[in-house]
Computed example of a mutant assay.
Amino acid sequence: MKIYLTRHGQTVWNIDKRLQGCKNSDLTELGIKQAKLLSEKMKDEKIDYIYSSPIERAYKTAEIIKGTRNLQIETIDALKEIAFGEWEGLTLDEVAANPIYNKELENLFQNPEKYRPFGGETPFELLDRSHKALKSIIDKHKNKDENILIVTHGMTLKMIISYFKQSLTSMEIMQLPVYGQTSITEIEFNGDEFNIIRENDISHYEEGFEIKGW
């Protein structure tokens, strides 16, 4: 069994470093191109099922990657991005400049146990829902020699990656890099253990891609 993980393509709000959360921001022309290049890169890979966050930027990325495969894309709410609550639509600079918000922004990445969201959710709530969803997916397919593709978001992808790196502390999870737009991470399950074959692979990017924001 193989598990392929990817993040949606570049969006308008990515460029501005706006916190998207459960709100949507459209894919840019570059984001669509990134997804098309990943689709081409993976055209010969065996993929039996595709799971996606229902948020439009992820679902559209999944549709592009699917290409001509005769597969349904199953959406799972637990694969959504972390809910940032009142912060959604704001840039990092705007959050940091707000005296009410700035301490919690620091806590989010530096002291996640103390983070208290403004109408959103904590990283631990995200961790719980994403791990439950991932385990359910794995249990469904692990005995059938079926390969799956999961299309999700930056923060959610950190949590999913931590499932395969179980020794990470909460601080280490939060300080993982934001994986590249349409990057591919490949994990193999041999029946006993998971092995990360490649991680945050963006080798399908064309020379000259200018990646702005995150």
Rank of each mutant, 00 (worst) to 15 (best):
E121C: 07
G120D: 00
T28S: 04
N24F: 10
V12C: 07
S170P: 14
L5C: 06
T182C: 15
D77H: 06
S203N: 09
Y51D: 00
A83V: 05
P117S: 08
I32P: 04
Y205H: 08
L79S: 04
W214H: 03
N24W: 11
K212F: 05
E45R: 12
K158G: 09
L127K: 13
I211F: 05
Q34N: 12
L149C: 11
I184R: 09
E121L: 06
T152C: 12
Q175R: 15
K2S: 03
L176W: 12
D139M: 10
R69L: 01
F194E: 07
K66H: 05
K2T: 07
E106G: 10
D201T: 11
P99R: 04
Y163I: 09
I211Y: 02
D128N: 10
K158W: 09
D77R: 08
R116F: 07
E94T: 02
F189K: 07
L149Q: 08
L38R: 08
Q72M: 10
E88R: 01
N190Y: 11
K46E: 12
E199H: 07
D77W: 02
Y101I: 07
Q72H: 08
F194Y: 15
Y51G: 00
E56V: 08
Q110R: 12
T152Q: 03
I196R: 09
N200Y: 03
K41H: 05
H153C: 14
E146F: 13
K132P: 00
I211P: 00
S136E: 13
E206L: 13
N147C: 10
T156M: 06
E207F: 03
I73G: 04
L108T: 08
E56P: 00
D145G: 10
F109I: 12
K41D: 07
F124H: 05
I76T: 05
G213I: 00
E188C: 07
H153E: 13
I184C: 13
I76N: 02
E210L: 13
I211E: 03
P112Q: 11
F118N: 04
E125V: 14
P117I: 06
P112I: 06
E146Q: 15
K114G: 06
V95F: 01
Q181V: 11
E125F: 10
Q166F: 14
L176D: 07
G120H: 01
P54G: 01
I187H: 03
